[in-house]
Design a protein around this nucleic acid. Structure first.
Length: 559
RNA sequence: UCUCGGGUCGUCUAAUGGCAGGACAGCGGCCUUUGGAGCCGUUAGUGGAGGUUCGAAUCCUCCCCUGAGAACCA
């Protein structure tokens, strides 16, 4: 490898190390990420992308992006565009190696003819129902199709007819002739070509027949010179078939299929079908809803590519089914954003405070540190005046023990400003607190040699020098760790009714005016937020990426 | 039921016959003008029973648990 830094390892890299040692493939390493363009990419795909592109990078090999577009009914150009965008956003590059399985249809067709000529494939005219019945069950052998012994000439003629559109969809298939009594159902004469007189998003109406995954995949891998074909566990049982085609077709330098466990994340679902259900039934606003585990959802939520790549490194790769704690994903984004984003004052639920002993028309400029983790981020100015807002939750009329914030008669520090004391609570007719009347201690201005200390420090914002914004508080989409755990229940029963709270009267530092979609900040003491794509200069909208860890919340719970 | 996989702290993952380690979560402390971050400490694991061996998470046998498999889907 290119350096002697400890490179993270996993069972796949061990296999590759061994292959390199044995000079298999002349020491060459080539992988591929092969999505079907029938849906949006999610964090589970990100695991696979990081795995495949990461291996190529570390072994000075190549990783291709290949669309597995063998089913025109389900696939669409919309998906290929979003997939390209997402993989690129994650930070990976495939140079000019953007491929499509459909690029290889001609070669696949030729090879299918070879199989027929070898007597290893035949045209079956059974209906799909009949084929199903011939298959048998895992414990009972199947039976031969009545068409299994057609002559090579007849097969060739029929297959040609299938290709040229002579037959209706479903009337014939090409099947591999393997073993109807194999304990592996996939080896019981699998269908390798079916008639679909559909328009393909790339080849349009050129083809009336389309290859099945099991046939198309090994051949695509072989054509591209893939050395290690990495896929998820559910394809493990397909591996003998993957190898069978390559062996029967005498294709040299066979790629090796290696399977790993797909990612499952707690408090979410990952299958394309279920995500589609959430979108179609409007439980979320779309594929890029910030609560979705899709790449586009995470991006809109404020996740960075780095945080996702780091997450992928942290979870590792193995063959056991697992459920990764979403807390690890959340940790990854906090870890990244903590180091890089600017802190800013933002009051989500404003409570007005009047500083009774502060001059009416005075405004002070105070220094605020942009990022304590990064001195190079510098400072900015905060304005202080007689009327300010603090967070509702930072005042309690009857505080519990260990509450460090404001309460009647209590004191708190306003970060970067002064210590204030609450003297009076103003309420409206319904008993709602509408205002706090406080006094400030002029001797305690931040940055002076004030020696007074108070337990709590809170964020605040000057009423005059602030702007209004909408803030969307996102939480986990589901209330249970595994919404699919109970097969009797629909996973949507476990949707978290509080996964989104919209706050409309938040007040932010004026400096945030003009923030652009994707801009990221830490709202002091609250969490990480980013500007939503639908935000504009008239109406700023922020999404909460992740809340800050809150040890008070934990303490409070235990009280 | 059959075939093929897989079982290591709560979770994810190392250890490839030689001290069961790391990360997240948890707990405790230090520090702190973010109840954040950071730092320190700490709890906690080899599914079970036999066997081989000086020595087993690792090799063998049996059992248990668990995932996948009977689409003209990928």
């Amino acid at each position: 490898m290119e350096n002697n830094l400890p490179v993270q390892t996993n069972f796949i890299r061990e296999i590759i190390n061994e292959d390199i040692k044995n000079n298999k493939n002349d020491g060459r390493v080539q992988t591929r990420f092969p999505p079907e363009p029938n849906g949006y990419l999610h964090i589970g795909h990100a695991k696979s992308i990081c795995l495949n592109f990461g291996i190529a990078r570390d072994y000075r090999g190549l990783c291709n992006l290949r669309f597995d577009d063998t089913n025109p009914i389900k696939e669409d150009i919309e998906y290929v565009e979003s997939i390209i965008e997402d993989v690129r956003w994650l930070g990976f590059d495939w140079d000019d190696r953007l491929y499509y399985a459909s690029d290889y249809f001609e070669k696949m067709y030729e090879l299918a003819i070879q199989l027929i000529k070898k007597g290893k494939a035949y045209v079956d005219s059974s209906t799909s129902e009949e084929i199903k019945n011939q298959k048998g069950t895992p414990t009972e052998a199947g039976v031969h199709s009545p068409y299994r012994e057609r002559s090579i000439e007849e097969n060739l003629k029929l297959f040609e007819g299938m290709k040229s559109g002579k037959y209706e969809d479903g009337t014939h298939t090409l099947r591999a002739k393997i073993d109807m009594s194999s304990p592996n159902m996939h080896l019981r004469d699998p269908v390798i070509y079916r008639i679909k007189r559909a328009t393909h998003h790339r080849t349009e109406d050129k083809w009336c027949i389309y290859p099945m995954y099991d046939y198309a995949h090994p051949i695509s891998d072989w054509i591209e010179g893939i050395t290690h074909s990495i896929c998820t566990l559910e394809f493990e049982i397909h591996r003998p078939l993957y190898d069978w085609f390559l062996i029967e077709l005498c294709l040299p330098n066979r790629p090796q299929q290696i399977e790993f466990a797909r990612l499952n994340l707690s408090y979410t679902v990952m299958s394309k079908r279920k995500l589609l259900e959430l979108v179609e039934e409007k439980h979320v606003s779309g594929w890029d809803d910030p609560r979705m585990p899709t790449i586009s959802g995470l991006r809109r939520r404020g996740y960075t590519p780095e945080s996702i790549r780091n997450f992928a490194d942290k979870i590792g790769v193995s063959k056991r089914d697992s459920m990764t704690d979403v807390a690890l994903l959340e940790y990854s984004i906090r870890e990244d954003l903590n180091k890089r984003v600017q802190r800013v004052m933002a009051v989500l639920n404003p409570l007005k405070i009047t500083i009774t002993n502060y001059p009416d028309d005075k405004t002070e400029e105070l220094d605020a540190i942009n990022n304590p983790e990064d001195p190079s981020a510098g400072k900015r100015v905060l304005f202080f005046s007689k009327e300010i807002f603090i967070e509702c939750e930072d005042f309690l009329e009857n505080p519990p023990k260990k509450y460090h914030r404001l309460f009647p008669g209590g004191e708190v520090r306003l970060k970067y400003a002064y210590i204030i004391k609450c003297n009076e609570v103003v309420k409206d007719d319904s008993g709602e607190i509408t205002e706090l009347r406080c006094t400030y201690d002029p001797e305690t201005r931040s940055g002076t040699c004030s020696t007074r200390k108070v337990k709590g420090t809170i964020h605040w914002i000057s009423a005059d020098n602030s702007i209004e914004a909408e803030v969307r508080l996102y939480d986990r989409l589901f209330i249970t760790e595994d919404p699919l755990a109970d097969p009797e229940k629909d996973f949507k029963e476990f949707l978290n009714p509080e996964s989104l709270k919209i706050l409309n009267t938040c007040r932010l530092e004026k400096g945030l005016t003009g923030s652009k979609p994707g801009d990221k900040f830490q709202f002091e003491r609250q969490g990480y937020f980013c500007v939503d794509p639908l935000s504009n200069d008239k109406r700023l909208v922020f999404n909460r990426t992740a809340a800050l860890r809150d040890s008070w919340a934990k303490l409070e719970k235990s009280l």
